[in-house]
Write a protein that binds this DNA or RNA. Structure first.
Lengths: 213, 213
DNA sequence: CCTACCGATCGGTAGG
DNA sequence: CCTACCGATCGGTAGG
């Protein structure tokens, strides 16, 4: 077969950062002060460039925000469909993989996820529409898996769309409070959230699973 | 008995707005543009005052943000402990009342809740510490109810604190997407979220409840 | 002498 | 990618 043998498990890989130095500096400033609370001079200092140097790479402060947010949403989407495809079993396995993917992204790419969640109102109309479309696409993926699970009898929720939204929001909110130096690692927290999310959609939580004590 | 016969169910009442006109105008601006994206002149225009008129009531733009956020957190807290106390039964009833209270607040006081959630980084150090303390107090209330439920055998979650945080965040996130002109009313959505939240903590969801079709 | 403001403009700083 | 700047607008305050 001529399928890409490498891409199968890349949704777990968070080694490389792949973000432009200007975006890296800007992301740090945005996280601390918000978009409007961040000045071009802060971004220049954080990326060790002059003000004019920043404008050599990006035409405006807004373009920097758009680049940060769109790359984050695209990264999450590619990982999500890879996680979905990697599940060999039924809707339960797909659900667990996608929730795991959401948790890992919102802990491993915490700042990107936080900005993508909180700076939507700072986007100009066109960029905002693009962002909302990407967010809805992500939401619909979870909804379709939950609806498949209900149809297969694996999930008992009477409100698949509300339960899906609840699950997605509890996962995205992780970028709001998670600290890498806390008690739980990214994968430990992901395992716990799979159980919590399964309960939310009326699935069976495997309490005797492979999670270590 | 000399108990206050009125205060028992006031956690359901969202009739009065009780917000100072300046705070009302500022809240509207903050919701649309964020704190740093809002100018004093926007707030003055929204509250039909001159700039100097605004400064007669509040000493600074930051003091306006603090007033909006602290009043929101205090309002939610008072409603939460009233909802908790109003539950006559065990931990399940207390849990359902508190989740209902959270949902009603985040739909009926959507803008206040949204600002309290997204503008923490715009608060100066002391005000931020106060806000975090109020947020933690709210979090601990839910945790204590869930832990009581686990002790009583009503909830089966193995991770009460993580499940509590997941429940609180799914409820607070409602202020991010709920629209009053949408398909579901505040109380209908609250009823659905009680079922979803019960599932998240490993409780029994009453599928044949009094929710109308 | 109080309150609830107003028209005008201050010293500095923002994005570009 | 820098120094030297701009048009405009910022948060906050003066006297009345």
């Amino acid at each position: 077969m001529s399928t890409d043998a490498v891409s199968a498990d890349t949704w777990h890989d968070y080694a490389r950062s792949q973000l432009h130095p200007v975006l890296e500096g800007a992301l740090h400033c945005f996280t601390l002060h918000g978009y409007h609370g961040t000045t071009i001079r802060m971004i220049a200092a954080a990326s060790r460039l002059s003000v004019a140097g920043v404008y050599h790479h990006y035409p405006s402060k807004h373009a920097i925000l758009v680049a940060v947010m769109s790359q984050a949403m695209e990264d999450l989407w590619q990982r999500s469909i890879a996680a979905d495809a990697a599940a060999q079993g039924g809707p339960v396995d797909r659900f667990v993989n996608i929730v795991t993917c959401l948790l890992e992204f919102h802990t491993q790419r915490r700042d990107e996820a936080f900005i993508a969640l909180t700076e939507i109102r700072s986007l100009e109309a066109n960029a905002r529409a693009d962002h909302i479309a990407k967010r809805d696409r992500q939401q619909r993926l979870v909804e379709s898996v939950v609806e498949d699970g209900v149809a297969a009898g694996a999930f008992t929720t009477e409100h698949p769309r509300d339960a899906s939204r609840a699950v997605v929001t509890m996962c995205t909110s992780v970028s709001d409070w998670y600290r890498p130096d806390g008690a739980l690692s990214s994968s430990e927290l992901a395992a716990r959230y799979c159980g919590i999310a399964l309960g939310a959609v009326g699935g069976h939580t495997q309490t005797g699973g492979p999670v270590s004590a």
